[in-house]
Computed example of a mutant assay.
Amino acid sequence: MFEIRVICTPDDADRVRAAVAAAFDTGPARQYSTRDRKRTRLYFTADHREPGTTPTSESE
């Protein structure tokens, strides 16, 4: 298990969440603003996905 941190624009947050959930088994993303309040920090607890599996509604 490992942590992923992504800094992105608020408009990209949903797209980033979907992309990370498609690549890894994740829990819900924790979301915080950056200090300048112009971007968003997303934190995921993740694990490698077993080959051939698809994301579940819990990981999206």
Rank of each mutant, 00 (worst) to 15 (best):
R17L: 11
Y43E: 05
D14M: 11
T26W: 05
R41T: 12
T9Y: 13
R17D: 14
G52I: 01
R41Y: 02
V16C: 04
Q31R: 03
E50A: 03
F44R: 09
A29G: 07
R49I: 06
T34N: 09
F24W: 08
R37G: 04
D11H: 14
R5I: 15
D12P: 10
S33F: 04
V6A: 01
V20G: 06
D12F: 04
D36A: 03
D14N: 10
A46Y: 06
G27N: 06
A18Y: 03
G27K: 03
A29W: 07
R30H: 08
P51W: 03
A22C: 12
E50S: 00
D25Q: 14
S33T: 04
I7A: 09
D25A: 09
R5W: 12
P28V: 04
R35Q: 08
A21G: 05
R15D: 15
V16A: 07
Q31N: 02
I7L: 11
R35L: 11
R41V: 10
R15Y: 12
A29T: 10
P51S: 00
D25F: 06
A19I: 06
A29P: 08
Y32L: 01
A22P: 10
R15C: 13
A21L: 03
A13W: 10
A21D: 01
Y43M: 05
G52D: 00
T26C: 09
T40E: 07
C8R: 05
C8V: 11
D14A: 14
G52W: 03
R41E: 05
R35N: 07
A29Y: 01
T40I: 12
T34M: 11
D12Q: 07
K38W: 03
T26Y: 07
A23V: 02
T26I: 13
K38E: 15
V6L: 06
R15E: 14
R5S: 15
A18Q: 12
P10L: 10
R41L: 09
A46L: 06
I7R: 14
D47L: 14
K38Y: 09
D47Y: 10
R49N: 02
D47M: 12
R15P: 03
P28K: 07
D14G: 12
T53E: 05
R39G: 01
R17S: 14
G52C: 00
R49Q: 02
G52Q: 01
C8G: 11
Y32E: 06
A19N: 09
R5Y: 13
R17Y: 15
K38M: 13
